[in-house]
Design a protein around this nucleic acid. Structure first.
Lengths: 207, 207
DNA sequence: AGCGTAACGAAACTGCAGAACCGTTTACCC
DNA sequence: GGGTAAACGGTTCTGCAGTTTCGTTACGCT
């Protein structure tokens, strides 16, 4: 009835269609970029009817949004290295690898491009980063507990500071940052946090 | 001839048309965002023929690109405050104000969105940031000369580190960062630079 | 001032993304 | 294993972004 297609009978063919379409969309995104992402192409490559793609995803932004949700779902498990510099370095390299990966990097650029055009996409993007940050915040908080960082440090700000320069480079130059840049970003965030740059006035952001 | 329209007779009406179109495009961008930027709307609001807009700018991305070039052209003059923390703070607040401004913020988001779809736009975006960075690099270099920062500091990296978290916030949340965030970014970049995070690849161990 | 043509503008045209229709397949429940 | 309707898919249609055409305006040069 009013339930969206794909939610009442999610098994069997429906699931196969979803997998094939997302896979094809990812391929096209990695090969030709966001600009030439045509739903008819996706349908053809996925071996699926054009109608189906339009019915279930509606538009390019919808498809990209679903793709992002899928990416966020199988998040890479991260192991703590024991020291905060090591953890931040691991996070920076994760972001760097992600940006350098053809599929994930292209997807990231596509999502950022589509976000201003579509509310759902914007929400998905926000959620994606929130989850990311929340995942790595504990590392920073442990650093505070261990006395590596001053009390009152805004852990989320530290995590965001690691990824920010890497994402900026990807988005502005169109080229993925080098591993060296990732290590530099991690070092910088750590040094700034140690110096208390994120422990100043209480942030109003969040809650 | 093969010269593009608007280049042979740039005066009088041609200039008026250009001004009106860019103004209208900026208005629509600020009001309705990048998604609903229709060239026919722009033409109507500018009191100009639809044909003219298509002939001179060709597409939405072309128009956005020209708009960006215009913005980069009248760059805000920056005065040096005498101290590096002060300069970085001034730069951070400039970026923050820009992001918070309805027209400029919307334009920035639109350009980033359009960049993956169009080579010229991507180049314009890259150029825009390059100019920005070059403008503020001297402040950092003076800081190095004064001995505030370690020798071998990558001045451009420091400048980029200031703007990165602010732009990331604008692009991922869709909301412009607060002035507080700008000051935090400036503090962090300064602290990291002082600690030598942007100087060479070797980790900071006194030495 | 007069001329050549660059640039503009209104209207008619075209191509294609996306929607509608409807018959076919198949997942889920008993 | 049989019934029901959810979901698929081929075809056709439509709305509109973008193009073409051609007549009009006015910039810049002498």
């Amino acid at each position: 009835m009013s339930a969206r297609p794909g939610t009442v009978r999610p098994g069997g063919r429906t699931a196969r269609v979803r997998t094939a379409v997302l896979r094809a969309a990812g391929d096209i995104l990695a090969e030709h970029g966001f600009a030439h992402l045509d739903l008819a192409d996706v349908a053809r490559r996925a071996g699926v009817g054009k109608t189906t793609v339009y019915r279930r995803w509606g538009s390019v932004t919808g498809l990209v949004t679903d793709l992002l949700a899928e990416l966020a779902h199988d998040a890479a498990p991260h192991r703590e290295t024991g020291s905060l510099p090591g953890d931040l370095r691991a996070y920076a390299l994760l972001v760097q690898r992600e940006a350098a990966d053809a599929r994930q990097g292209a997807l990231l650029r596509a999502v950022v491009a589509a976000a201003p055009c579509d509310g759902r996409t914007a929400a998905a993007l926000r959620r994606f980063f929130e989850v990311r940050v929340e995942e790595w915040v504990p590392c920073v908080e442990q650093g505070v507990a261990r006395g590596e960082l001053p009390a009152g440090t805004d852990a989320a700000a530290v995590v965001r500071a690691v990824s920010a320069p890497l994402h900026q480079e990807l988005l502005t130059t169109g080229v993925a940052p080098a591993p060296h840049a990732a290590e530099c970003a991690a070092r910088a965030a750590y040094a700034a946090a140690v110096a208390g740059a994120y422990a100043g006035a209480a942030p109003v952001t969040g809650r």
